[in-house]
């Protein structure tokens, strides 16, 4: 198992290097690299000094190595827009995004999987048809549109919930959390639903497809032939067996949920990294873009590793092969 983790970590380093190269080419090499480290209103003298200081007169591969060196030291530069170190800026926004994303993904799974299993268990039932209709909508309708409808319905028309912002927060572990206060929850609920709907649709589909196939399998027939109740069969056999693909997708989707948080945070003015990246893209605040992309890549790799470990924990066949 340790060898497996080490191997994965080694792969992670290579992937991070590849991504840093892509980001370097995408964000620095295209366009004028000086803009990355200097605000547009700097004087000519400062410009020239900076070119020398950052080595922009050097060949590209040297610049890349220097870029890597800065990254390795945690130096992502300063944001022009907010005039503070990028790492600190992102660090201050990250908890809000994580809070929103986790609420959405966990909520989608906890609600979506049982409903999907039901729809797979009774594919012709009326309730199943309704569940599937909701999932087709959640799958098809763009996130931003759902956000608008939610705001229009619950904030503008009904006035039940706030239309945006984070509301009251409470401090825990040195970070502010909305989910620790009632007002915070009121602010969290609409964006979380917005972000969750796509994942919910995905979980419903996965659970439904898996359940439908398993209900025809010999494993389920054998359990039935042994007289096990349908509840036991669904909980102990079907849920267990579909949990492996669900965990995989859960991990992968957590990443894409982080990405879609960009949209949700923009609509609901949720002060997380997603809103930050949109602001920095529209104002060409490139250090923030670089740091964000590297951070997302890091999170991805960490999640993939966790998914692999979770799979090994769930599936004894994998444990055996890797032990």
């Amino acid at each position: 198992m340790i060898a497996f983790v080490l191997q994965r970590l080694w792969q992670a380093v290579i992937v991070m290097l590849a991504i840093s190269l892509l980001v370097f080419v995408g964000v620095f090499a295209i366009g004028n690299p000086i803009d990355v480290v200097l605000s547009p209103d700097a004087t000519q003298q400062i410009r020239e000094e900076t070119i020398r200081a950052y080595g922009f007169d050097q060949p590209l591969w040297r610049q890349y190595l220097a870029f890597l060196d800065r990254l390795a030291h945690g130096d992502f530069g300063r944001s022009f827009l907010f005039n503070m170190p990028v790492l600190q800026l992102i660090g201050s926004r990250l908890p809000a995004t994580l809070e929103l994303t986790l609420t959405a993904v966990i909520g989608a799974t906890v609600i979506g999987v049982p409903l999907g299993m039901y729809a797979g268990y009774r594919p012709d039932g009326a309730l199943s048809k309704i569940i599937m209709a909701i999932s087709v909508l959640g799958f098809s309708v763009p996130t931003f549109w759902i956000g608008l409808v939610l705001i229009f319905t619950f904030a503008v028309t009904l006035g039940w919930l706030p239309a945006g912002g984070r509301g009251e927060t409470a401090r825990a572990f040195g970070v502010d959390w909305s989910c620790l206060t009632l007002g915070g929850w009121r602010h969290l609920i609409l964006p979380a639903i917005n972000l969750a709907l796509f994942k919910f649709a995905m979980m419903v589909r996965l659970a439904r497809a898996g359940t439908r196939e398993l209900m025809l399998s010999d494993t389920v027939k054998f359990a039935r032939a042994a007289g096990e109740s349908e509840g036991v069969i669904l909980r102990r056999h079907v849920l267990r067996l579909i949990s492996i693909p669900i965990v995989t997708v859960f991990g992968l989707e957590f990443g894409s949920t982080l990405a879609f948080a960009v949209v949700t945070e923009t609509i609901f003015s949720w002060p997380g990294v997603g809103k930050l990246i949109i602001d920095s893209i529209s104002s060409l605040d490139r250090p923030v873009m670089v740091a964000y992309l590297m951070l997302v890549a890091c999170l991805f790799i960490a999640i993939n590793l966790l998914v692999d470990l979770a799979q090994a924990a769930l599936d004894p066949r994998l444990r055996g092969a890797r032990a």
């Binding site: 399998s217 010999d218 494993t219 027939k221 054998f222 359990a223 032939a225 102990r236 056999h237 267990r240 067996l241 492996i244 769930l314 599936d315 004894p316 066949r317």
Partner: peptide, 14 residues
């Protein structure tokens, strides 16, 4: 009842 293919019959995760 006992089925044809024991590999498909038993739950591989339990």
């Amino acid at each position: 009842m006992v089925f044809q293919d024991p590999a498909a019959t038993l739950n591989p995760l339990l």
